[in-house]
Design a protein around this nucleic acid. Structure first.
Lengths: 211, 211, 211, 211
DNA sequence: CATGAATGAGTCTTCATTCAT
DNA sequence: GATGAATGAAGACTCATTCAT
């Protein structure tokens, strides 16, 4: 019986091993990049954090920059799967649920998200290709919701694009200190409360209704 | 007749010349830092941008890091003077006026503001000592306003701290693409419109009043 | 019945297999070394060219340097056997035949020859122990021939050592562009013509005899 | 009186200082490259040989490869000026004089010449653009001489190209051991003798004229 | 004060060699 | 024996800082 070479059990095991190692390196690098920024981090630190030799990095990635790009890519996944589950937004509950899910997906791997947020300030590829792209996808859902309601006469005739931007800003303001490590990650209950507060402000503002 | 050295007219001229040169360097450095981040910038680039020799930088600053800190400090001034003029906030008009002023002061020297925003992600000194400090000062005004109104029964019983955070987030979302260079700086009319939109959303939300 | 281990048929087969594999590796390495030089080649490239894993190299050779030395050694064989067949040189025909044989042996494995030629420029061991040694052996034949003829009054009283050096230079000039890959390998007829041209120049020069 | 900036005496002095330093570096690098080959040499060694810090190399050259190319270029000069002085070759004396001059120019800066010879084995740019180009220029002079004489009936109808190649080979054989450092540089008298021996062999061969 | 060449510690990356599987 | 991942020493190159002019 010949040794299975392709598609065999060994090849699969090997693939898994490689994949696992890559993930470890990415996690280590994301922690470093999140703390010091890409340019301020060294491959030596990354290797130490991943508990491997510096040279080993290059068995898994073509270079420091490729590690960054892999992190950026990996950061896509949670939000991506989340967005694919989004149904049409109909009312307050849908918005709150969406907000909660966005919280969860962004906070599920804070070093990755933080790395992306930092580098988007400096790198146009990351800003345009990743951050903007994602924000626009979330924005589209919001805008569709707002536009429909405006036409139905339920919402004031606001600018849907600007409004969705401001909503995203509101949520970002909540998440930022957590990403930055300035505030601990909130409990699920707290997340729900934050989502409600934001959505209620969006819908009704803070002024008491006179009617 | 000896040349006056201290306090004389020459000494003052010298002071002014030094001060002017420092400002030029800061402006040059801020442009570079804003584009590439502190760690990604070189003193050579800064010197070239400032049109001086590399060594000359060290006649005005103790090192690269000190240039950054000076930029961070310089970025304080506009917001500072602006905040000192703020009177008690009483209603929609006051909020809009405040928003406009914040826009103006942050956008009056975008490279400085952008540099601070980027580095605050990485440097705790800058985050705590500068960014947070400023946000809290703005926040205090908002919170005082909100608290008073809640007590007066004019506002719903929202959490003033959280609300002010979200407001700051809304404004940030508007300013960010401008700072980042992704969107051109808005005209005064546009700034007014943006401020109104944000304040109205804060006060009344987007839902049509039923009464 | 136990498997014969020493001197048995299996052991011989094993020896042959090992020997064959070593030769494959040498051929692969010589191709690489000839193109990029020893220092400019990597064990990874050699392994790839030999279609084996990098680690396998070390089952057949102690290291990169040993591969080079084995190539240098292997390059000896053809010239060696050729030189052992050389009889006393008596005249034009013998010289031409010798020249042809030298061509053949040097061109029979160009990557090996080229590798040796390149590294002899840099490595004293190779220069002294191999290249010089061979040239001197060829030189001795020529010098014996020249000396005898000079004494017999058939040749002018030239310096035999210098003359043999120049002859070797003439031949080298012909071979060099072929080794270097700049010129295709010449046909047997062409080789004969080249050999004749060189020998005739040696014997009679290019000037027309006046007698 | 303003400080002269362009074309002034200071600028010229500076140019000279830079030029001198570049030459020192090239000399040092050529020594190292000649001994160990380009790929086998390190910038550390070059810097040490030039008695400067490693980083200083990069103030004068863009990188290791550019140092090599500068050496290759610098090696052009002596042969170049020499070739421009060459008049039409008419007879034995002209050939001897040419040979002597070629000796001189190649040996005037042996590390440069040796570096070029070694790298030409490995680098097509150097082989084609430099070595071949030079050999062809020398070759053209020889070929013109040979062709004219053949047509005049003074030379046998040899192939001029092949013959000039062989002549170059003869000379190379004489120079090689000197370049390689295997033989000391010959005295002017010895050079003259070598040139005569080579030219006489070219013209008349070594066989005694029967007439 | 201005200059910019010199410095060398530190960076990213390569590669010969080892060794567990 | 064959494999190829792991290693870390060493290499080319960068850059903040110093200092002689």
């Amino acid at each position: 019986m010949a040794i299975e070479k392709r598609g065999g059990i060994f090849a699969k095991r090997r693939q898994r091993r490689i994949s696992r190692r890559r993930d470890e390196i990415l996690k280590a690098a994301a922690r470093i990049f999140a703390e010091k920024g890409y340019a301020g981090s060294t491959t030596k630190e990354i290797a130490a954090q991943a508990d491997i030799a510096e040279g080993t990095l290059y068995n898994y990635f073509d270079g420091k920059r490729e590690i960054l790009l892999a992190i950026v890519n990996a950061s896509q996944a949670p939000l991506e799967t989340m967005l694919q589950e989004v149904r049409e937004l109909r009312g307050r509950e849908d918005l709150i649920a969406l907000a909660e899910k966005i919280f969860d997906s962004l906070l599920s791997q804070t070093p990755f998200t933080r790395t992306v947020m930092v580098e988007a300030w400096l790198d146009d590829v990351i800003l345009q290709g990743v951050v903007m792209e994602r924000m626009q996808r979330i924005g589209q859902h919001l805008q569709a919701f707002i536009t429909a309601r405006v036409e139905a006469g339920a919402f004031r005739p606001v600018d849907p694009v600007l409004t969705s931007w401001m909503v995203i800003g509101m949520f970002s303001a909540i998440i930022l200190p957590i990403l930055r490590g300035h505030t601990p990650s909130p409990s699920p209950e707290r997340r729900r409360a934050l989502a409600e507060a934001a959505v209620d402000m969006l819908l009704d503002g803070i002024r008491v209704r006179e009617g």
